[in-house]
């Protein structure tokens, strides 16, 4: 539930471009919103949709309180279609369904909006289907594609959309905001490193699972340093029990990545950027065990592991391989 004024403070450039589009009555038929996680792409999409549908808007600001606005928020508006990945990918059938929907007249109004979340997760077939559909827009149809990775979207789709770059948020501002909300400095730093979104960060901070996850990551480091021969045991006994699905493993790997990034900061004397600030002692120890060259290699291995998890490789095997690479 953001207004254009609020959005202008988060994403000044994109807001300006969109509001000008409305003012000059030049709303594009397709937009591609791209930018890192938590930069307000969804909020912007929903705001844009509300402006298109709200009947009680003042200037271009939707009222946020009418039937249309409420239903756009709850996902119940019959002429607004949200598409998000069904499992790992957005499937051809989902696009087919959308196409079919668009051969009908509108349910309540003559305009329609479809929003595709994580558009980079479309299968090739789905992309090609969508392409056909983007090429020949119906009158008064607006497409909004959201993605964190604009490069993995078909070039031909990109060229048919108006690209809107969402800038990463100002991390210092967010960190201060979080500290105002009562988080400790250490926690606030960690949250800022993981997400760009204030409410997500608050939620993560309260999450018990996440607190344990952090503990396990630190424990893993400890095991790797002091008893490397037990590390595989640790992976099977603790890690795999705690990080169950792929989403969770990704998050665990993110934390691990941050730790090794901290080691680099530590080595280069860039102490102000360190995320795990209360683990100085352990870090000193790590710096003695692992060379800077090795740490850089480890960072690369963690990135590879993350990629493999995304590609459906067996998580236990990925983790085993990673720990072996870190020990070396």
């Amino acid at each position: 539930m953001k207004t254009w004024t609020e959005m202008a403070s988060i994403q000044p450039l994109v807001s300006k471009m969109l509001t000008n589009g409305f003012k000059q009555n030049r709303v594009s038929h397709a937009y591609l919103f791209y930018g890192p996680k938590g930069t307000g792409k969804r909020a912007m999409g929903s705001l844009l949709t509300k402006t298109l549908f709200c009947k009680k808007k003042t200037d271009i600001e939707p009222c946020q309180d009418c039937k249309d606005c409420h239903r756009i928020d709850s996902g119940n508006h019959p002429d607004v279609h949200w598409i998000s990945p069904d499992g790992q990918t957005i499937k051809k059938e989902q696009i087919l369904h959308l196409q079919k929907e668009f051969t009908y007249t509108g349910m309540e109004s003559n305009q329609k909006v479809y929003i595709i979340d994580q558009a980079d997760r479309m299968t090739t077939n789905a992309s090609n289907r969508l392409l056909k559909f983007l090429e020949e827009p119906n009158k008064e149809t607006t497409a909004i594609l959201l993605t964190e990775n604009s490069q993995s979207i078909l070039q031909t789709i990109r060229s048919r959309c108006q690209m809107m770059a969402f800038k990463p948020l100002n991390t210092v501002a967010l960190q201060n905001q979080l500290m105002d909300k009562g988080l400790t400095e250490a926690n606030a730093r960690l949250m800022v490193a993981l997400t760009n979104n204030l409410s997500d960060a608050m939620e993560l901070d309260k999450d018990e699972w996440f607190a344990n996850a952090r503990k396990i990551v630190v424990q893993l480091i400890e095991v790797l340093q002091s008893k490397p021969e037990e590390s595989l045991l640790f992976i099977h006994n603790s890690w795999m029990h705690h990080f169950k699905d792929r989403e969770q493993i990704q998050q665990g790997l993110d934390l691990l990545l941050l730790w090794f990034k901290d080691l680099i900061y530590h080595a280069t004397g860039n102490e102000a950027l360190i995320v795990f600030m209360y683990e100085q002692e352990r870090m000193e120890k790590s710096a003695l065990i692992w060379s800077r060259q090795h740490i850089t290699n480890v960072l690369q291995s963690i990135m590879d592991a993350k990629k493999k998890i995304g590609q459906n490789v067996n998580p236990a095997l990925v983790m085993e391989q990673l720990t072996l690479q870190i020990q070396r």
């Binding site: 051969t103 009908y104 007249t105 509108g106 003559n110």
Partner: peptide, 21 residues
């Protein structure tokens, strides 16, 4: 109507969207 067609019997109203084009 503009977007829909309605068939009305005594107590049942049947509405369908129309095909566009």
């Amino acid at each position: 109507m503009q977007n829909q067609i309605m068939f009305q019997t005594k107590n049942v109203y049947f509405l369908s969207r129309l095909l566009d084009g």
